Simulated assay, not measured.
Amino acid sequence: MPEVAPIVDPGTTADAPSAPGRRRRGRTTLLIATAAVLGLVAGTCAGYLVQADREPTRLPSLSQPVVAQAKGPGPEPLSAAQDHRVKTNGDLRKLLISRPKGTKALDWAPEQDGWLDLGAYADSLTHADREFRDLVAAEFRRAAGVSWSVGSTGSTQVRLVQYRQEETLGAPERASRWDVDGARAYGVPGASDGMAYLFDAERKPGYLPFYKALATASRGDIAMEIWIFDSKPIPKQKIMDLAKRQLERL
């Protein structure tokens, strides 16, 4: 019966003698590698010894030279034309347009001496309690206004409301908060968010028609609002002219 031949590595043969004249390389290779490692270690030690004998390199100072302040008066403060806050941090009432000649001041106007505090301004709006909370959240700072009447049924209110704008952009947000559903809208030149609105008449039995127009815009930290009320239609040009004149003063 045939037998299975054992598996033998082809490079070697069991019981085969070494070939004549063949030298063993393992010992020589090990000696060379050991010598290389010792040489590397010796070189590293020598480098450390040389570096230790040298004087330490002085590092540059971290402090900078003191620059002497220039003599003479400091720079002139910016004018109101150059710095918007120079104008708006002053008397806010001076930025309001003047009451037209031939008109009368409104006895029931909420402003006192041209100023509206937070409570007075909120009370002049619909849903006063909610408006008060919203104004506080919007960082209300102060408000100024001027109002007048024309004839027996017409009246106008102009208000400038300033916000602190430390955590939120109160002025542009409040300028666009009005309920203008159904109104005819027109852009007002002079402000990127300037808008004018004409509302349809509100009619109730036994009362004259009630017309209103609104103009809004913001400039920096100030929100502008202008209201016109009358018993007859309000021309578009009337509200637009008032808005343009008021924006020119901001």
Rank of each mutant, 00 (worst) to 15 (best):
T28D: 03
E55I: 02
G145W: 03
A213K: 01
F229T: 04
M1D: 13
P189R: 11
I239Q: 04
P17L: 15
G11W: 05
V188T: 00
A217S: 05
P65W: 12
R159Q: 14
F132M: 08
P20H: 08
A16Y: 01
E76D: 15
T216D: 03
L95N: 12
E225N: 06
D15F: 10
Q82I: 11
L160I: 07
A138K: 09
A70F: 13
S63N: 14
A138R: 06
D9S: 02
K238R: 15
V41P: 04
Y163P: 02
E139S: 00
A70G: 14
T13V: 11
P209M: 03
V161M: 15
V8C: 02
P209D: 12
A16M: 06
L106R: 15
V37D: 04
E173Y: 00
I32M: 11
A33P: 01
G151N: 06
A196I: 12
R141S: 13
I228G: 00
R219I: 01
L208T: 11
G220Q: 04
A81W: 14
V86D: 04
D134P: 03
H127Y: 12
K101L: 09
R130Y: 10
G194I: 02
P235T: 10
A128L: 01
F132D: 07
V50H: 09
R85A: 05
R249M: 13
Q237N: 13
F132H: 13
G119R: 04
D200Q: 03
D15N: 10
A80F: 02
D15L: 13
A70M: 10
P10T: 08
P233H: 09
R23P: 10
A5G: 12
P233A: 05
H127N: 15
D230T: 00
W178M: 00
E166N: 12
L247A: 08
A19L: 09
E76Y: 09
R23E: 07
V146F: 01
P205A: 08
M1Y: 11
Q51Y: 15
A201R: 02
L250P: 08
Y211P: 00
Q246Y: 03
G114F: 09
R141Q: 07
V180G: 03
R245V: 15
T57D: 09
V161W: 07
I239Y: 00
L38A: 14
D241N: 13
L31M: 12
